[in-house]
Design a protein around this nucleic acid. Structure first.
Lengths: 213, 213
DNA sequence: AGCATTTCGATACGGTTGACTTGTTTTGAG
DNA sequence: CTCAAAACAAGTCAACCGTATCGAAATGCT
């Protein structure tokens, strides 16, 4: 989960009547979606009702239903939102560090996919909730799979750059291992089996094993 | 998820009146639990109702309620059941192979925690559902954490044996990495991001990296 | 056989849910 | 200003849920 930004929803406008400039529409919709994301993180995916969302967002049930015709559409919007958040996290860290070496980028990606603070923790909780949902709903499964594939492709690209720079690594399987490892470390950190720091340490050790040969 | 067998439920008997030998009781209870596990694998944790369970098990709603006073108790029983299944999977493979070397045992554990067939797939789906639930319900979180700790301890023990036999490995962090990796590989295989075979290949490569130094 | 206890089916109840309908207010293009 | 479309709010509804109740049947110890 997280990482792939499949936009195309917020800011659609297109042929639709640009009623009220359309700006207020997206803003209010985002308010509701953020309430949904927060609630899913706290109560899980099936633990929330439209009335809960309305209450949390401080709006009426009618308003929520105006922006999302069905509950499923609302949840899909929330799913897109956490993916956006994940992508934004990574972009932010990359912009902060400045180091664009494959190793640094991979480290940045991995770090942002761990529950290093409450914000990340909540986003990852939502991601986990959607992962469970994906096992039952093929619609979500397809979206999730796409996101992971994009992330995998990115990792392969980075590892290929590293290999070309002299690092002894097989990009394709190593990317697969890395992504799975990050996923597992993140999940275990979420449920409290270990701390984010310990997860990060394991990851660093493994990355060292790859890059220092 | 999976792996730790925390029994203490089935076969409790104890001070309770041994009405009807008590054998039929456990059998019928297990029938219902198996229906629950199957349903959770198919429809997720929140997608099932007591009526669904009764229908799937071919019994009346009243009977389900007789064996489980609340829905939560029923789900907890299902959770224990998948843990039992996971432990049974590993035991079975270990008995089959006969090889008790640390490497073989680790390989066996890892293999049984991947969706290598429909039976394993369903059990792992249920495990994922409970993982998502654990993020919201501290009761399940505690049980899950205990299971993972047991598995972690076992891996540390095995890796310590390997180290004493001359393998260059740091048991504690390596066990943490392994368990997380298995978790991630399993999850990704479940959602179809890669096949169980690919997951197994990644794992084998990593194990080779550890043991062939 | 007698009888307490377990087993289990049928039914009902209060509550919640997502979806829908209806009516009112707001908005901005013409 | 006009007016149609959008943006809401409130209420309604049927369906479903977990749980409780009550009575009948099965069971097995004494």
């Amino acid at each position: 989960m997280l990482g792939a930004g499949q936009y195309g929803y917020i800011g659609k406008v297109s042929t639709q009547r640009t009623r009220g400039v359309g700006a207020a529409h997206d803003e209010r919709q985002l308010e509701i979606v953020d309430a949904v994301v927060a609630l899913i993180g706290e109560q899980g995916l099936d633990g929330i009702s439209l009335r809960d969302v309305a209450s949390r967002a401080g709006v009426s049930l009618g308003r929520v239903q105006h922006y999302f015709r069905t509950k499923d559409q609302m949840l899909q919007a929330a799913f897109r939102r956490v993916n956006e958040l994940g992508a934004a996290f990574v972009s932010q860290r990359l912009a902060d560090t400045g180091d664009t070496s494959p190793e640094a980028v991979i480290r940045a990606i991995a770090t942002e996919l761990l529950p290093i603070d409450d914000l990340h923790r909540n986003a990852l909780r939502v991601g986990t909730a959607f992962t469970a949902r994906a096992l039952v709903d093929s619609e979500f499964a397809a979206r999730l799979s796409t996101g992971y594939t994009e992330l995998h492709t990115l990792l392969v690209l980075l590892l290929t750059q590293a290999r070309d720079a002299g690092v002894d690594v097989d990009p394709e399987p190593e990317a697969r291992l890395l992504l799975s490892l990050i996923e597992g470390l993140s999940t275990h950190a979420l449920i409290g089996h270990h701390t984010p720091d310990m997860a990060l340490e394991v990851l660093e050790t493994h990355l060292d094993r790859i890059f220092r040969t």
